[in-house]
Design a protein around this nucleic acid. Structure first.
Length: 499
RNA sequence: GCCCCCAUCGUCUAGAGGCCCAGGACACCGGCCUUUCAAGCCGGCAACAUGGAUUCGAAUUCCAUUGGGGGCGCCA
């Protein structure tokens, strides 16, 4: 038992067809946590055996995602390892010789059926309401017949000769014993006509050669597991242990896809989610520590991760909870760290008319004001753009806050303008000292006075605390904005009733 | 159509026969705090899919039904 623990070797085997899906990364995370928990190895292997679907740059995107979440790999691209290469496209001979060996052993055969024929066959099966699957036409082909077709130039694949009887069972670490009737499994392709292996062959060969101890993959693979087991047996390999993780679904309960909005981790990063939050959130999709612990850092996750606590039920990716958790992590950042992380988002999203680079000192006076008010780093721009813009653009009506009228608003603005002009210091305390008494003097509520000022100074009715905001903006800017507001009020026509 | 998996609040989940007329979190709804918005604190709403069986006792075991998901490619 203890010996097995030391030999834990798991892999994340993405196919470079685009930017990685959160579900895909969740699978990577569980593999990574499992490896780290057991002191084993986490291997990254690129399954680039589909020439047609390969996407340029996808490998980099995938590795970048892993790096962002700080999931380091012990073997794989860039770092190498004893079992390389870690790109399947560079291991073709391995699969080809395995396939050939299976043919020689009588466990596989050449198939000359054309894609067109297979399509017709499938159409027919659908029409007759039969289960789709290869009809095994070439299975009985004699060696001579096969050779003749080959010489005549027909393209061919290698198919596995699936046993027609009995059943295949195995113990899934999460679901227990699972059994399949062999008769329901068709003669699947091992080697495509372009000489590339299918997933089934390649993953079995590689998992064996790379000494993978546990295969942790999404549940969508559960029904191909008997094929893999048959292959292990035919090749004389000892199979690894299997654990099929619950799927991640979209809000409509179907397999998570682009239709469900942001699905790639790269997008989440760009939207201002923190890697720490994403990691924590993903870890809770299909796994839990106990009945109350939710906030866990990387080390705590590693310490506690266990397949025994992985659920069997598919989970819906709940964006609202992610938002909450991201906000929680943001709030727990110290202000310097928060500011440092915010700057790239401001640089990216603020109007191009604003001079770059943004002044660090000014920005670091602003960030404390919205630190606990954002759910994502990208939220900051919208909340703070009035700090950077010269001319505020807003409707004059906005200046008439609740329980106010234009005359009162003018009064508030005029009075505060005078008062602010005389202030010695323009910091939070003196501002409060000067403005708070105004409410009594004018016999108004704080909401009326401060609300009006808020709009004048920020151009919006929702903003960070007034005195701090004004202090950061500075006297000159505040006075200019109050003047501008006054102008808006005097120029603005009376609002017609009932509009 | 066939095969496989799954089934606790809207969502993520705790629960491995009595501790559960079911606990936590998000969301939602109130309240407090408060210059707006947040944050924070307090409170509330809300679930064991259905039917059988086993048992003194079932959310927990078994069987059906229903529902959901996944798979059935020269894709992974």
């Amino acid at each position: 038992m203890a010996k097995e623990k030391e030999n834990v070797r798991v892999r994340y085997a993405p196919s470079p067809t685009g930017s990685p899906h959160v579900g895909n990364i969740r699978t990577a995370l569980f593999n990574w946590l499992f490896a780290r928990h057991h002191g084993g190895s986490f291997i990254v292997r690129i399954e680039d055996t589909d020439v047609a679907r390969r996407v340029e740059g996808a490998v980099d995107t995938i590795l970048e995602a892993l790096r962002w979440l700080d999931m380091n790999w012990d073997e794989g691209p860039e770092v190498g390892g004893e079992h390389g290469p870690y790109f399947q496209s560079q291991r073709l001979e391995l699969y080809q010789s395995a396939a050939k060996r299976l043919v020689e052993q009588g466990d596989a055969y050449y198939c000359y059926c054309t894609p067109e024929r297979l399509e017709e066959m499938r159409a027919e099966q659908v029409k007759l309401k039969q289960p789709p699957g290869y009809d095994r036409r070439c299975r009985g082909l004699s060696a001579t017949g096969s050779l003749l077709k080959f010489i005549s130039g027909s393209r061919r694949v290698i198919r596995f000769m699936t046993p027609l009887e009995k059943q295949t069972s195995f113990t899934d670490l999460i679901r227990g014993e699972v059994t399949f009737e062999n008769a329901n499994i068709d003669d699947f392709v091992l080697l495509k006509s372009d000489g590339y292996p299918t997933y089934h062959l390649a993953s079995v060969v590689d998992d064996h050669v790379m000494a993978i101890s546990h295969v942790l993959r999404a549940e969508e693979w559960l029904s191909s597991t008997p094929r893999h087991l048959m292959l292990y047996r035919a090749l004389g390999y000892k199979p690894p242990q299997f654990a099929h993780l619950p799927m991640l679904l979209g809000t409509d309960r179907s397999k998570l896809s682009k239709r469900h909005g942001a699905v790639s981790v790269t997008e989440y990063k760009a939207q201002g989610y923190l890697a720490e939050a994403m990691l924590n959130f993903l870890s809770l999709l299909g796994w839990s520590l106990d009945d109350k612990t939710e906030i866990m850092n990387r080390q705590k996750l590693i310490d506690n991760f266990s397949l025994k606590r992985v659920s069997q039920t598919a989970a819906i990716f709940n964006r609202e909870k992610l938002d909450w958790m991201n906000g929680f992590y943001i709030r727990s950042l110290d202000i310097g760290d928060f500011t440092r992380r915010v700057i790239p988002f401001l640089e990216r999203d603020l109007s191009t008319e604003i001079k770059r680079p943004l002044p660090d000192k000014y920005v670091s006076r602003i960030t404390p004001l919205i630190h606990e008010r954002v759910k994502t780093l990208a939220d900051v721009t919208e909340l703070t753009d009035f700090f950077f813009i010269d001319e505020l653009d807003y409707k004059p009506e906005l200046l008439i806050v609740k329980k106010m009228n234009p005359d009162l608003a003018v009064k508030v603005l005029e009075t505060s303008r005078k008062r602010l002009g005389r202030l010695k210091e323009f910091d939070e305390n003196s501002l409060e000292g000067a403005l708070r008494p105004l409410t009594e003097e004018l016999e108004m509520k704080t909401g009326q006075v401060f609300g009006t000022l808020r709009v004048a100074v920020t151009g919006r009715s929702v903003a960070p605390p007034l005195f701090q905001t004004m202090a950061v903006l500075g006297r000159e800017r505040c006075l200019d904005r109050i003047k501008a507001a006054l102008r808006k009020l005097k120029v603005a026509p009376e609002e017609p009733e009932g509009e």
